[in-house]
Amino acid sequence: MVKFIAGRLALAVLIMLGSAILSFSILTLAPGNAAEAILSAERADDPQLAEVESFMERHGLNNSRLIRLSQWLHMLSKGNFGISLRTGEPVAEEFRARFPATFELAASSMALAIIIALPFGVISAVKQNSILDNVIRFVALWGVSMPNFWLGLLLILCFGVILGWFPTYGSGSIVHLILPTITLGTSMTAILMRLQRASMLEVLNENYIRTARAKGLHEVLVIGKHAFKNTLIPVVTIIGMQFAHLLSGVVIVEQVFAWPGIGHFLVDSINARDYPVIQGFVLIIAFFFVLSNLIVDILYAFLDPRIRYGRTQ
């Protein structure tokens, strides 16, 4: 297992580098000019050509792509992510300051989704085609289809403006977390619920479930012990992928609730062509994707003995 993890982590470095070089290449080929974008946003007016040229010179943006890439890789080898063109702060610091907020929101939304989706997904499958099943499926469909920004604004209007129960923006306490968590968690809950239901239906038709029932096992044990655990492989995969996706920032929810996470900052940086920030953030986000996939793989081994035994053999 240790060898497996070490191998995957070594691969992670390659994947991160690959994604960083790819993002750098795509960015430099994309239209737009960092100096113009940053200066005109700062002054709300066209910067003069001379100002644009001086900005580009100061930040080495006139150098060829290859030189800029090698300079960046050289810096990276020393553990330096560079300085943001827009804020003048180190990229690592910009990430560190914002990541805890993103993590908090991602974790709470994921927790909400798991707590609601798994039991209701199971109930929906067990009571297939009942009224309850139809209600759950309808709610799931509604949750998947609802755009985030619309749900967010609706929740603010209802619970912030009309009822006044929750603050309309900001972060820092449990009450601040509730509305953004619901907004972000809704679609995830719906996706997981549908997946859990489908996965459960498949397992319930398996022979070993029929065997378990035939030997007179209590239905709770059949579902809870034999069926549920076997439904988890696809569900855990999706949870892992979705969680990594959430860690890469949730722009719209962060924007609507003024949540100080990385998503909104990253999009602003992309618009401003703030190359060091984009490259640095992509690199770190790639790491989280690799890490969450690794955790999912390790979980597989615990969930499915065949995988575990296969590896040890």
Binding site: L153, I156, G160, Q255
Partner: peptide, 10 residues
């Protein structure tokens, strides 16, 4: 969202 926060008195 800013307009809603203004309406909520925040």
């Amino acid at each position: 969202a800013q307009i809603l926060a203004l309406k909520a008195g925040e």
